[in-house]
Design a binder for these strands. Structure first.
Lengths: 389, 389
DNA sequence: TTGTCTCCCGAAGGGAGACAA
DNA sequence: TTGTCTCCCTTCGGGAGACAA
């Protein structure tokens, strides 16, 4: 058994510590999942304090307490200029998250805002990759990783098949720029691709379990990148010995309120896998959804969900109600104000409340708002931003 | 090798998850260290937002950013009623911390407050314990833990010395109420006490390194308790993928300000080992120190520090300056407003700024304020709480 | 095509006394 | 009294093909 020059464990060229250096965006997006996009720097976005609060609550496994003070000056949504986005990965868990710097802007010029319809360029890189959910054998202490044939052929450098048992050494970088080395061998009867030496160190290093997934990417420079996605979406983390959850929630609201009052910058962390809370939405996407669609009770729609193996699938549903999620605190918010039912029973947790920009309404010719009394009660003037903005 | 019924690892009877159940106070205090006391529930305390902020900054390894808004309505100290104290330990690291529920009280009746001089009952339990700093051999993969003779005799149940090699099984509970089982044997030539089977599982489970300490307590019910204290006081934790450090600081200040404005409850976490920031001080202790002593430049004092092995030692120093730590944000605060020099060079990090209630002034008959011009500039009226309260 | 088993053999590590600081 | 070493022997677990789903 030949050990690499740096013996066991990953080799980390960058001075990491946290993860404050540049993270490979391809890998970040691959780990984040097919549905995650981030708004472009310099674009306008809508920030929902309510959604932000929800994400923190999900991360803390704790409901928002009732005794958080109201911030009457903080609207349920803030139009912001997105000053910066940096990609990160948790040093412990590799969980991906993004830091965004936002600046609330004056919303007096509503016309200009409505006209804001920048092309939603998806700057998600498209690259060759494969993703495999780990089997019990893959994570067992006996033996290595069984590489799916097509995956090995598509992603890994070709082996020298003139050898009796073709072998090579693979190097792949993870989100922290740590290099992991694997022995890639083609052996057995019948022949198959395996990763042997180096694999178990990776599994234990990342604390992977059967059911978790690994993904390999080959980037444009023919370098291998390596990411993980954990199966159990249990809110991994902390009951935080540092800050009470009250203080956290207050911190979010007060920081946003302060920034709104002064048009100053504030910073949020967006954690795409912690909870389905895309609380920073491109203004163009928001406008298109809110002013482009007539939503009504009974309306049918499609919505994309992530599958295993990094694909997407669309499920059909029906709008069963339109109401504020938290009428006390966040009145007239568009945040998840649609109650929905689903045609199929849920693969994982299907949500029973969504926001309008998450769905694709199906406007059949025979089903354009036939029941006027189903319309939302507060008749919304088309062409006006929501009441509380 | 006889495995316990529950095979490897600790047995955890309580449904832990976090640590929300009752933590053994003796063990908590032992792990917290000899200098840590917590104010009594129902007593009055002084809360320093500045100190709280400092602790969070230390936990985040991040300085307080300049662009945190000022909270002009938030004084540098709040007199609070302490409604509740619960003891906790971090599920990951066993780091001890306390959650305190505070209620700011109206400070109009200053006379009553000054009169407040409840006896500072130290409710720290005093129990039999021993603490040993782990050697390289203790933490090596080969062999177990060498128990100091006196420690074994004082704390462990007596062995049956009629046996040729006396052996017994020990069970000890940690802060999470997990039970760890060890084989305690008296063998070797010359004879010594050792913990063998079970020890390495404990070391790896708690991620102990040479230099860390373990402590065993025998409580009044003759049960063994087991705690750890880590050597490297590196701020262990998180660059937090949940909340920006700005939001955290704002959260602290806004939560305190909101509670102060409404005389409502708020919650803080006090982490005695994260940083020397005792930011919740019994009012009696505060009053005694602030109004009982005349502090002057050049004044000599003693101050207690923790030694290894859970003892205390007092070091001598001299007051070299009296000034606000952060004159911009927290004017006229008593929080660490004394600059000090030390007679001996520091064992670990000796602090160069302390608060008056942390020191014991030495009032020599020949050294009672001989230099009037050394007095603090804003002549403090004795009998008046600090200007900003 | 690939997940699991079992077998083989080398590495890791627990548990003992020796020895010395 | 106790920290480190070394030796012994068990256990663990990487790495191979067998075999079956």
């Amino acid at each position: 058994m030949m050990k690499g020059p740096a013996s066991a464990g990953p080799e980390n060229p960058g001075v990491d510590g946290g993860d404050s250096r540049t993270i490979n965006p391809e890998l970040w997006y691959a780990c984040a999942g097919p549905l995650v996009t981030l708004p472009s720097v310099g674009s306008l976005v809508v920030y929902f304090p309510q959604g932000h609060s929800e994400q923190v609550a999900a991360s803390m496994k704790k409901d928002i307490d009732a005794h958080i003070p109201n911030y009457p000056n903080l609207p349920s949504k803030l139009i912001c200029l997105l000053h910066g986005v940096t990609l990160h990965a948790d040093a412990e868990t590799d969980e991906v998250y993004a830091q965004m710097t936002l600046q609330p802007i004056n919303t007096c010029d509503e016309k200009a805002l409505l006209a804001y319809d920048l092309a939603l360029k998806t700057n998600k890189p498209q690259t060759e990759f494969f993703c495999k959910t780990l089997t019990a054998s893959d994570t067992s202490t006996h033996g290595g990783f069984s590489v799916p044939r097509r995956a090995a052929e598509k992603i890994f450098p070709p082996l020298d098949f003139s050898m009796q048992t073709p072998v090579q050494e693979l190097q792949a970088r993870d989100l922290h720029d740590s290099v992991w080395t694997f022995r890639h061998i083609y052996r057995g009867k019948p022949r198959r691709h395996l990763l042997t030496t180096g694999w178990s160190i990776f599994v234990s290093g990342k604390k992977l379990l059967a059911g978790d997934s690994v993904l390999f990417i080959r980037d444009e420079k023919q370098q291998l990148l390596l990411g993980i996605r954990r199966a159990n979406r249990q809110p991994i983390n902390m009951s935080s010995s540092v800050l009470s959850s009250d203080s956290m929630h207050i911190g979010i609201l007060a920081a946003a309120a302060h920034a709104a009052a002064n048009s100053s910058l504030f910073t949020v962390f967006y954690n795409p896998r912690a909870s389905p809370s895309e609380f920073v939405v491109p203004l163009a996407k928001y406008n298109k959804a809110v002013y482009g669609n007539q939503v009504s009770l009974g309306m049918r729609f499609r919505m994309s969900f992530e599958t295993e193996e990094l694909g997407t699938r669309r499920y059909m549903g029906t709008i069963t109600g339109i109401s504020d999620l938290d009428p006390g605190r966040w009145k007239n918010s568009n945040w998840r104000n649609l109650q929905v039912g689903w045609d199929e029973s849920a693969p994982g947790e299907r949500r029973n409340r969504v926001s309008i920009w998450e769905i694709e309404p199906i406007l059949t010719p025979f089903f354009i708002c036939p029941q006027p009394f189903f319309r939302t009660k507060r008749s919304r003037q088309p062409g006006m931003p929501g009441a509380s903005a």
